[in-house]
Design a protein around this nucleic acid. Sequence first.
RNA 1: GUGGGUGUAGCUCAGUUGGUUAGAGCGUCAGGUUGUGGUCCUGAAUGUCGCGGGUUCGAGUCCCGUCACUCACCCCA
Length: 429
Amino acid sequence: MAEESLQPIRGMSDLAAPEICLWHALEQTARDIMSAYAFQEVRTPLVEQTAVFTRSLGDTTDIVQKEMYRVLDRGGRELTLRPEGTAGVMRHVSGLGQDGADARLYYLGPMFRAERPAAGRRRQFHQLGAEAIGPATAMADAEMIALQAHVLEAWGIKDFVVHLNTRGAPDDFSRVTEALRAALAGQRHTLCADCQRRYNENPLRILDCKVEQCAEQVAALPPITEWMGAPANAYVDEVLAWLERLNIPAVKNPRLVRGLDYYQHTVWEVTHSGLGAQDALSGGGRYALNMAGRPVEGVGFAIGLERVIAVLKAQGLVPESMMPRPDVFVVSHGDRAAEENLVLMQSLRLRGIAALMDVRGRSVKAQMRAANRSRSRFVIIRGDTELAAGTFQFKDMDAGSQAELDMPALMNRLLPGPAHAVANQAGDE
RNA sequence: GUGGGUGUAGCUCAGUUGGUUAGAGCGUCAGGUUGUGGUCCUGAAUGUCGCGGGUUCGAGUCCCGUCACUCACCCCA
């Protein structure tokens, strides 16, 4: 066998410049908006006891059945790399007791699912999620959808669509399940293999099957809300009313049910036409379940960062344009000058000026090339001549102009510098 | 998990019906007189042709396997 191929494992990859600059920008925007909605960040462990996920997501879900990275630790305990963020947050909240009754929390980080990678789907991917813990009210649900739309818009995502549905109250659930089985009983054998299995295990999931023959039969069914009681219907309508009041466009999609068992009442998904096969940008819903003996109710969503970035790139955004520019590159000629320039560079950095220099003792020409490649805004050249005269050559790399300055004049050019270097960044080509 | 496509220098790729020292563009580095970038000119370096096996006098080129990437299905973010 090959000695060792230390490459990243399938579906996981490094995230570095220039792409990382885009991530920083998105993260900063998201944190600001979360603060505006009074959400606090929570960082739960990347690994939890397997039961945290199996109990909350549901045993029959695809995530639990075939997509979790499960490992045994030294004590033989069953652990799992988190496939989503909600379960860990609920576990956290259940430990807070009364203090967790109205928690407003968000998270941002990697999730793991052992799937076959494809466009918009990785084994390690990243989600921004938010959870509002508290009693079920339509206003709380609408607020979350508004928050989510706010984030997507602030990131510059255009033309996303919010699909909304209800899974009904808990006591509607069995009624809908039975009604579905009854409605499909006759044509059961014409459904796809997966749906025949779902017919027994979880008939709701048949509703969002993409196989054509199933979709046709589903289209002929009445909307599931007809089998639900009046309270459940009143609840969704109220959510829709609040959204309208907030000017958040949303379309009702009676086939949307989502794949996780903990949802009840409002569920939604945001799609974008520019994504291809995996067109879901984010999803969320209201849930209720028992975590460690404590009931936890809440509403939340998760946005797939990789997919957001795919849309932004499709919209023409280039990560390279977001790379920060160094303010100044220091060029030396002669050992004495190099020594003094190292000290100069350090003092510039202490004042917040982004500075760098060549540390290999290369020719002035090579240093200038390096300065150009680094996209530095300015170059300071100080050799033996300048050292003797107590001056600096100060070159504007964009304009190509150069002037000889003394120390006060140099500082004068550089200290207000970051401001106009930033202003310049937007306009460079 | 199932199916399709791909895998040749840092990057994007070419490589004719298997034939002798494997190429281009971009990038990198160095020069174009002795202290100056981005344009131009000249030159240089870099490949276990994904990995393993097989067929053959001979394989980047054919066959098998394997790994990875990629796309679709499934499901989801």
